[in-house]
Amino acid sequence: MEDEMSKTLVIPNDVFFGHVMESLAAGKHVVFTVKGWSMYPFFRNGKDKVCVASQQGRDLKPGDVILFRFRGNFILHRICGLREADDGTVCYLTIGDGNVRGMEMATPDSVSGVAVRRITPSGREWNCDSRSWKLASFVWMKLLCVRRWCLAVLRRIYR
């Protein structure tokens, strides 16, 4: 029984996020490990966990990190702007913190959740509502034009 407890369960993305959506819809917070480098340095691939809450009742704004569905994939990226769609709906323009180009347009109904906390492997938590998180996010967004070089330096010293 002990061996079974320590196994790693590999779950297809769609199935995994189906359960995440279900929990979020039930008003629960969900914690999972972030995969990929697109949210580096705020979320490191395979290391940092994100705590996501339902976006229901939240007024999403630039700087918020949202979980949404885009072209069939679930993505965790940061809102960098708002844009009005042809039908008048206000959509969210997003970009990964670790990306220097390539933005996605997230429609309000494609958004499932918003990041509320980052948890490091040591268990240290960083609240996304904290002033330090907001300040770091603000600075990082402002550095978009020089992000390429910031990332090059950071990847050497912070993995």
Partner: peptide, 25 residues
């Protein structure tokens, strides 16, 4: 108990909510 990819699993409730990194099959 949830059915996840053909496995019967229980998701651990951490202090931050449902911890999908701690699943018992």
């Amino acid at each position: 108990v949830r059915d996840m990819a053909g496995q019967h699993v229980v998701i651990i409730q951490g202090r931050n909510g449902e911890d999908m990194t701690r699943i018992i099959s």
